[in-house]
Amino acid sequence: MDEVTSTAHRAAAVPPPVRRIVLDDQPTVVTPGANGNGNGNGTRTPAVRFAASDTAARERMRVEELTIAYAGRVAVRDVTLPVRQGEVLSLIGPSGCGKTTLLRSLNRLTELTPTATRGGRIALDGQDVDELDVTLLRRRVAMVFQQPNPFPMSIFDNVAYGLREQGTKRPGKRDLAPRVEEALRRAGLWDEVADDLGRPALRLSGGQQQRLCIARALAVEPEVLLLDEPCSALDPRSTQTIEDLIVRLRAEVAVVIVTHNLQQAFRVADHVAFMYLGELVEYGPAADVFGNPRARRTREYVSGSFG
């Protein structure tokens, strides 16, 4: 086991606390239902293979042995994960450890990066996402980004944007109005914008913009909702509104949220996946990962030793 010890203030009179960063520990993945043979301390548990009983009916997506590299540099290594409806899955871990890459691969946004290559399998309802038409896949697996990014058009048009089909069939405003209202209600924005849906969306506040982006994603009625640090640019009040929203949404859609904020993950997540340097170190129910982490690196990360 290789340990890197770094001292931050060498010149200081009092020796600073030693921060240990473990670089090549084996992943310890604990699935719900498995009776914890990986109790940390470097116990080697092979990369996850889910037992048949874990493949519950609610499982919407499944990532198997996923490896993603940018120009040969591996960003995600051999990750296997289920994404279930009725629960919020939170991906946690330090910056640059592949959380966002993993998230983006779920609706094939990684393909927009020319240098990205992918191995392994991602399935949506049992079907390989590579076999699906990419525009259809992205309607079923919608995404909300770190920065609020409403389109330069009215609030109404923003929400209706995903609903308007490309090509010949173009539903009119009258057909769209109920669906736009519904999406805005689900995102908890309706009461604030109902009186003026024609307002440019970029005039809204940051928190409202982000909820608009969630409404926009919900309007296409996705099965899976991907959230990439949706609150990192927002104030605490907007963050709370959005967290409440995420918890409410999980009954209808499978939610995957990437977050740097451990407290946030603790508040919203049912299951937590801890990623470190591209590898899935630990996966399990949120209470276990935070309360009784099995892998040593998880314990250190959760307790704030590094990250």
Binding site: L112, R138, A142, M143, F145, F151, A217
Partner: peptide, 22 residues
């Protein structure tokens, strides 16, 4: 910013639609 383009792709829009509408 690029994430605005990606937001449009993430709604299942083509590149042409993204250019024209966003």
């Amino acid at each position: 910013p690029n994430h605005v383009r990606e937001a449009s792709y993430a709604l299942g829009k083509t590149r042409a639609a993204t250019i024209r509408r966003v």
